[in-house]
Computed example of a mutant assay.
Amino acid sequence: MRFSSRSARQLALAAGLLGFASLTACNKDTDGGAYAKTKSGIEYKIFKKVGDKYERRELAATGDPTYKDRVGKFLLGHMEYRTGKDSVLQNTRRDVGLPVPLPLQELKQKGMPDEALSLLQPGDSGVFRFQVDSLIKPKSGQPVPPFLKRGGNVVMMYVATTNKLITQAEAQAMQPELQKRAMAAQMKQRMASPEYAKQMQAQKAEQAKMLATPAVQAQLKKDDAILQEYAKKNNLTVQKTPSGIYYQVLKPGTGPTPKPGQTVSVNYIGTLLSGKLFDSSEKTGKPIEFPIGQGAVIPGWDEGISLLNKGSKAILLIPSSLAYGSRGAGTDIPADSPLRFEVELVNIQ
């Protein structure tokens, strides 16, 4: 969905970050009386909180004269976009669980979500109704998405703000946490789709097919003998998974084990069995983060890390077929190299 001018940026800000509990009573067109209308065509109802209830707040025809004092700052609030037929497009409370920064900018174009936000004071809640044709200009060459046509050619925006204004620096400081939560929500939504299940089945089938080839089976047997000898020589008390990974828990964790799709944070030291270091999280000074079971790392890591509780430290001995295989990795990891990793599962998001 692409809207003209700054409405696109506003929707991008809200994307994956949009919800409501406090505006339940305001979500129906019949509540709070008829819509008022700005000169630019935005239909709106604005409410201020009085005690435990919301009361309608009227605006002057010229808008809110106090807005100039808020330009450059950010409201904190929850947002929701819906079609005219009440299908939820985006929802911050559901997907993020925290109030998100809503920018208060100089208004260079009227009739857009930026102008709607300019009508709100801290603590206000609002219901705004936009005609799709005002957001997607015919001259832009962008067609109206079919789902918006089916939704009545209307976009509804609901906003519930806190009593606090924040600075740009404070808003930027919130972004890493908001992005993590948004990514987790997107991953959860993706995992719930039938397409995801089919993709995971196909990925597992492809991996099983690869592991069943004579060449890989021969290499697995060779690697298994090497790893058993290595574990014995280094006095490791290891367990073996059906796929051929050996692991030893050095320090048990007390938290849960990660589930497919969850993002984990892992400190690690990777070496060849000769002891040569080829990689470490110490190089970046922070744990590596990746989603479990998505093919973002080598298969041995997807499986090995999923065996550990949050807080665990462990040794993983990974056969080459579940690492970098016959291709190796650059100049540091030769072809058909079994690998050793010392890992710490720092966090599960």
Rank of each mutant, 00 (worst) to 15 (best):
G141E: 12
G16R: 04
G328L: 11
V100N: 02
K276T: 12
L104H: 04
K276W: 08
G151Y: 09
A171F: 05
N309E: 10
M79C: 12
K108Q: 13
G328E: 10
L345E: 03
E80P: 00
Q219E: 15
A34L: 14
I318Q: 05
P338T: 05
P338R: 02
R6Y: 12
G41Y: 06
L59K: 15
Y158I: 06
G51D: 12
P252R: 05
A61H: 10
A335V: 00
N235E: 12
T38H: 01
K28M: 04
Q349N: 14
A231C: 07
P338F: 01
L59Q: 13
S243L: 14
D302T: 07
I42Y: 03
I333W: 03
K73G: 00
K222M: 10
P103R: 05
G72E: 11
G255M: 04
R129C: 03
K110E: 13
E195M: 07
A34K: 15
E55N: 07
I292S: 08
I166A: 01
S306W: 04
N347Q: 12
A314S: 08
Q217M: 14
Q207A: 10
A61D: 14
A202L: 14
Q239Y: 06
V216F: 07
V127D: 02
I333Y: 06
K68V: 13
L272Y: 06
A314E: 01
G330M: 06
V96L: 09
Q201H: 09
Q131T: 11
L75H: 15
S5E: 11
K49R: 15
K222L: 08
G293P: 04
L165H: 01
K53C: 00
V132G: 01
K85M: 03
G270C: 11
M200L: 14
Q201N: 13
V216C: 04
K233V: 04
